[in-house]
Design a protein around this nucleic acid. Structure first.
Lengths: 192, 192
DNA sequence: CGGTCTCTTGACGGAGTTCAAAGCTAGTGG
DNA sequence: CCACTAGCTTTGAACTCCGTCAAGAGACCG
């Protein structure tokens, strides 16, 4: 529960009073594995900050194949940004992979917070900036690197969770089929 | 020159005085085609807002192939976000495609602006949010759509500039080789 | 003009997909 | 606690999309 204050403290310094205002804007929640927090067609009313557990954010495209946008473990934020920002129905899913405790912040409360505690606007600006940089990097990696290298990057980026995910979810993050991912892993162990 | 104020006005309302403070933070510049504004290894000291002309932001990977991160025409911003935010050397290039007039904002001035005119922090937050959403969408498109469909999306996204770019640059945005792009275009005209 | 850069075209190769079948794991209910 | 099922993983063969290499045909500029 202090984790969110620690995360904020990395970027801006809040007074005790501001800290209270911030905490009051959140709602704590606990979800068991397999809970679907958000479905296609729904409005993403809240961003969630993960205190413990693991979540996954993904889309299902026209050919009914899943593509993982991101995983979120302790200390990470997750939301369908398009839907959260616009409050229009989104096209993505958010699902709980391992029993999780989260702090969720509604869009309404967030906008209030921006006015009451301007430092929070800075905090979120910096988060989004970093997120954008990471996302651009991932896009470039996908355009120029083979799946094997993307896999090693994935392992570096998500060390906490790499062992507790089903392979098909890793494959869907890398952008390959589970079949190909299986063969690739074998090749990386034996052939190489 | 008013274009930047119009862009800002879409998201926040500035007083006359604030408008002046904002304008004063920028430096105008004019560059002929083929000017390289930023090279790999350099620090991206400024973000630029395009008044007229066209710019391109790209990387060159280990195999010496180019990948276009983005194009920027009138009313768009462009910068190497990683380098601009961290003020560390970046790994990307920014080049002028057609003679351009830009307003450039140094990182230093931007940070001053955030404090002097907090509404500008909001303006940039919103810009970055949109940029992130667009980037996530592009990543998902790249993972799940064939090059032909990505090309039609490209045409929708950059209608102003689609006819004044060399094909190899479009190919490098889509993530295919110029050779394949050439064959694909032919097929889309004849075969289809 | 002449040279450089871009675009086209073709043959071949490789990374990744699809489909299908079989083995494996783990959750679930009796 | 076992048996069953449903989903996950592995494997293989055929196939597709796209890359590489190479050569020729424009096109643009000095």
């Amino acid at each position: 529960m202090d984790l969110i204050l620690q995360s904020i403290a990395k970027h801006v310094t809040l007074t005790k009073e501001e800290q209270k205002t911030v905490i009051d804007a959140f709602v704590m929640a606990r979800y068991p594995a397999k809970t679907i927090l958000l479905k296609e067609g729904e409005v993403c009313e809240s961003s969630v900050f993960v205190l413990s557990g693991i979540l996954r954010h993904y889309i299902i495209n026209d050919q009914a194949t899943e593509h993982t946008i991101s995983f979120a473990a302790q200390g990470w934020w997750v939301a369908d940004m398009y839907s959260f920002l616009s409050q229009n129905p989104g096209n993505s899913y958010i699902e709980v992979i391992e029993d999780s405790i989260v702090m969720s912040l509604s869009r309404e409360k967030q906008l209030e917070l921006f006015d009451k505690v301007p430092k929070m606007e800075r905090y979120f600006r910096v988060l989004i900036e970093r997120s954008l940089v990471a996302n651009q990097q991932r896009l470039m990696d996908n355009l120029s690197l083979p799946a094997e290298v993307r896999y090693t990057r994935f392992l570096e980026r998500f060390p906490e969770i790499k062992y507790c995910l089903p392979q098909k979810q890793i494959a869907s993050y890398l952008g390959v089929t589970p079949e190909f991912f299986s063969k690739m892993k074998k090749k990386m162990l034996t052939g190489k």
